[in-house]
Amino acid sequence: MPYFIRSELYTLQDFSFLITAGSVGRIIGGFIHYLFKYPPKKRYIIAVTVYLTVELFSATMLYMPYFVMITLSFLVGLLSVTSYNIRMTATQLYIPAHMRGRINSTQGLLWNIGAILGALIIGFIAEYTTYDYRLIMLLSASKSVVAIFLIPIRMKSEFVKIYNADI
């Protein structure tokens, strides 16, 4: 949002359309998951491809023309639902039924704590440095790409067992 507030080219209305495109993407992605089942043996590769694609789109979005930003925001929303559903479905297979609620709530809490801390850190950097907002987003997404390589890609054999399980 600060990028759009301080932009000479864009407005908050442009930002709201960008956010709306992402929301519409998530809604449509949710409907797709009711109609289409991903092949079990392809879930890991789909998930990792989606993780990397979402980060690439997020890192470069603010460098694109506005109509491309809208398209990328829509695709990020659509793909985010895909990775979320694959991850949640796969992990639920390994958790006993009596613990699923606790695991889900703990996982949600940890995701939210991470999101809050990330927003605070990035906000602090944006507020107290002279870095361009686009560069901050690029560097932030780069950290996520490193994490993708260090966790699901480096630990592929463990992730394949979980993600590719036939449910």
Rank of each mutant, 00 (worst) to 15 (best):
74 F>M: 00
21 A>L: 03
94 Y>S: 12
57 F>R: 00
134 R>K: 15
41 K>D: 13
54 V>D: 06
69 M>H: 06
167 I>Y: 10
20 T>P: 06
150 L>E: 01
128 Y>I: 02
120 L>R: 07
29 G>C: 00
1 M>I: 10
142 S>D: 03
83 S>H: 12
88 M>P: 00
86 I>F: 02
154 R>E: 00
82 T>N: 09
124 F>E: 08
1 M>S: 12
101 G>R: 02
166 D>C: 00
3 Y>D: 03
97 A>E: 14
61 M>A: 03
64 M>Q: 14
138 L>F: 15
154 R>M: 11
70 I>G: 02
24 V>F: 07
52 L>G: 04
166 D>N: 05
21 A>Q: 02
124 F>P: 03
114 G>A: 03
67 F>T: 09
137 M>L: 11
165 A>E: 12
128 Y>M: 01
6 R>D: 15
161 K>L: 04
50 V>Q: 09
135 L>N: 07
117 L>T: 11
132 D>L: 07
13 Q>T: 12
115 A>T: 09
67 F>Y: 13
4 F>G: 05
39 P>M: 03
157 S>K: 13
107 Q>G: 08
82 T>L: 14
32 I>R: 10
102 R>Y: 09
21 A>E: 04
39 P>N: 08
153 I>V: 14
132 D>W: 11
65 P>G: 05
23 S>T: 10
55 E>N: 10
108 G>F: 14
20 T>Y: 10
119 A>Y: 07
25 G>K: 00
38 Y>L: 14
81 V>F: 05
106 T>R: 13
152 P>K: 01
109 L>W: 10
122 I>W: 12
81 V>H: 01
35 L>R: 15
79 L>H: 03
52 L>E: 02
15 F>G: 05
33 H>A: 07
167 I>E: 07
66 Y>P: 09
144 S>Q: 08
125 I>A: 03
131 Y>P: 01
71 T>Y: 09
115 A>W: 11
31 F>L: 13
72 L>V: 00
72 L>T: 03
103 I>M: 11
72 L>Q: 14
89 T>F: 03
80 S>I: 02
100 R>H: 01
14 D>I: 00
19 I>F: 13
80 S>Y: 12
53 T>Y: 13
104 N>C: 06
36 F>M: 15
87 R>P: 01
14 D>E: 08
49 T>I: 02
112 N>R: 11
28 I>Q: 02
149 F>R: 01
33 H>R: 11
129 T>N: 11
164 N>C: 01
26 R>Q: 11
61 M>Q: 07
118 G>K: 04
91 T>E: 10
109 L>K: 05
37 K>I: 14
28 I>C: 06
59 A>K: 02
22 G>S: 13
158 E>G: 04
80 S>G: 15
157 S>Y: 07
79 L>C: 02
154 R>Y: 15
101 G>T: 03
122 I>L: 15
117 L>K: 04
159 F>V: 01
2 P>T: 06
65 P>L: 00
162 I>M: 04
100 R>A: 01
98 H>P: 06
47 A>H: 08
13 Q>W: 10
3 Y>V: 01
42 K>C: 13
55 E>P: 03
127 E>V: 06
97 A>R: 11
146 V>Y: 07
21 A>S: 05
151 I>Y: 08
106 T>K: 12
65 P>F: 04
94 Y>W: 14
103 I>H: 08
22 G>K: 10
149 F>Y: 14
117 L>A: 11
37 K>V: 14
79 L>P: 07
32 I>V: 15
138 L>E: 05
